[in-house]
Structures are given as C-alpha cells and as structure tokens.
Design a protein around this nucleic acid. Structure first.
Length: 109
DNA sequence: TGCTTGACAGAAG
DNA sequence: CCTTCTGCCAAGC
C-alpha cells in the first residue's frame, strides 16, 4: 500500500509534503494564500487538491495555521465554519458574499 | 479493476 | 452571485 501519489517517487512525495507544510507555516497572521499557489511553489502545479489532502490528513498540519489557506476565490473550506472565525480574529476582512477579500489579504511566498 | 469522492480551479448558464 | 460541469489526481470501496 503506497502512501504517496502514483506520479511521485517516495522522495518527491516527502519533499512535496514538507514544502506544503513549510509554506503554510510561513503565512503571516492576517494574510491568506491558496491551494494552487502552494502546489505551484512545491513544484507540482495541478496538484492543488493534494495540498488540501495534505492539510486535512497530515498530523503536522494540526500545529500549523492551515486556516490561512483558502481557495482562489477566497472561499473557506466546506464543513469548517470555525476557519472563518479564526481568520476574522486575525483581522481578515470578509466580503458580503462570505468570501475573503483576496485583494487585501492574499500572500505569496 | 472501475466508479465515486473530495479542505481545487476555471468556465458556463 | 450561485449552481453545475469538466479537468484534474489520488484515495476509498
């Protein structure tokens, strides 16, 4: 049973996970970034869904500010209403439609 | 092995 | 703005 993507060697998978977690750990308070941006910076564009998987299932993600990761439109993770609260506590502004104001808060590594 | 399901992205209606 | 569909890739069953 593999624990890494078919298209990645075990080394690449390890690097990918580490990169994802490292980048998330660097997001400043009050800022957000997207799954696609993280995937691209980790060297695997089109693997944005993998970023979401990593954050959802990797144990190390629990100690990281993964609430600062939203999708490209500023939408928060489905089924995780607390994410919005955490962001608002950091001063992140939400638009009337319930999305993060990406213009103001988007951050890139 | 084949079909379904996502913490995604982009386009269409 | 919201829903739905397609493309994407890996995981679960």
């Amino acid at each position: 049973m593999r624990d890494y993507p078919d298209t990645m060697s075990p080394e690449q998978a390890r690097t990918f996970r580490n990169d994802v977690l490292n980048i998330v750990g660097q997001i400043p308070s009050g800022r957000v970034t997207t799954y696609g941006i993280i995937a691209a910076w980790a060297g695997w564009p089109s693997h944005s869904r993998m970023v979401g998987r990593t954050l959802r299932y990797a144990p190390e993600a629990a100690s990281l500010p993964c609430h600062r990761v939203v999708n490209k439109e500023g939408r928060t993770a489905p089924g995780w209403s607390r994410q919005r609260v955490l962001l608002e506590e950091e001063g992140v502004a939400f638009r009337p439609n319930g999305h993060v104001d990406m213009q103001r808060h988007l951050w890139e590594p």
